[in-house]
């Protein structure tokens, strides 16, 4: 959940990149780190990895100030995708303000995707969040590969849910920024009513999104 300190005029938002093992969550953050301007962005912090597999999490922080002087920090986390790190996933998922679900487009990964999505739903409810209400985008990553599930199939499954789906390649940089922008926009709208970001703090939705997605 959002962290808001009225006195210090600080707002901390937490976005979590969730998904099955090796679906490209860390690559997404690396891509954002490479594409976006250094201004208002911290370094990508990768906690210990083993054989290039995330075992804790990665963290890419953003910082911006509204015209009113409200300091907003946006922390983008990844979770470890491997099944055995479920406790870590739960810990990271706590108080999340938005979730990007990174699915693996490879045809062989369909089962892992759905298992991981079920796991997301379960863990969200365990930490007191509702998948129906939390800002959520879905990425079908690795579109640059050959043996991948076709788009019609993806649309057939996901369109009825109303969850926006992006076809991406984090390795090539396709769609990564767009999906991040979508998540940022949804997150903005989910908190705007409560904190009146536009009215009291002079920060519009598009301003918020563009500050987070300014290319270098």
């Amino acid at each position: 959940m959002i962290e808001f300190d009225e006195q210090k005029k600080r707002l901390v938002l937490k976005l979590v990149y969730y998904g099955p093992a090796l679906s490209g969550k860390t690559t997404n953050l690396l891509c954002l780190h490479d594409l976006l301007t250094k201004e208002g962005r911290g370094d990508l912090m990768m906690l210990d990895t083993k054989d290039d597999r995330t075992i804790y999490f990665d963290l890419l922080p953003f910082f911006l100030k509204t015209p009113s002087g409200l300091k907003i920090k946006v922390k983008v986390y990844t979770v470890p995708g491997q099944v055995r790190h479920d406790a870590t996933r739960k810990a990271v998922l706590q108080r999340a303000d938005g979730v990007a679900f990174i699915a693996d487009s490879q045809a062989t990964e369909a089962r892992n995707n759905s298992t991981s999505f079920d796991n997301l739903e379960t863990n969200l409810s365990l930490v007191g969040l509702n998948i129906e209400r939390i800002p959520l985008v879905v990425q079908y990553n690795k579109r640059d590969l050959d043996d991948i599930i076709d788009e019609a199939n993806i649309r057939r499954v996901w369109d009825p849910t109303g969850i926006p789906v992006y076809l991406t390649s984090a390795l090539k940089g396709w769609g990564v920024l767009e999906s991040f922008a979508d998540l940022a926009r949804q997150t903005y709208h989910s908190i705007d009513k409560r904190y009146d970001l536009a009215g009291r703090h002079g920060l519009s939705s598009s301003e918020f999104v563009s500050r987070l997605t300014t290319r270098s």
């Binding site: 962290e3 920090k73 706590q94 365990l126």
Partner: peptide, 24 residues
């Protein structure tokens, strides 16, 4: 399973809430 938060503000009434990545 571990306790779940009971409020939208993340405050837990029943037990500890293990937050990772609090502002430092």
């Amino acid at each position: 399973m571990a306790k779940t938060p009971t409020h939208s503000n993340g405050k837990r009434e029943d037990n500890l809430f293990f937050v990772v990545g609090d502002e430092k």
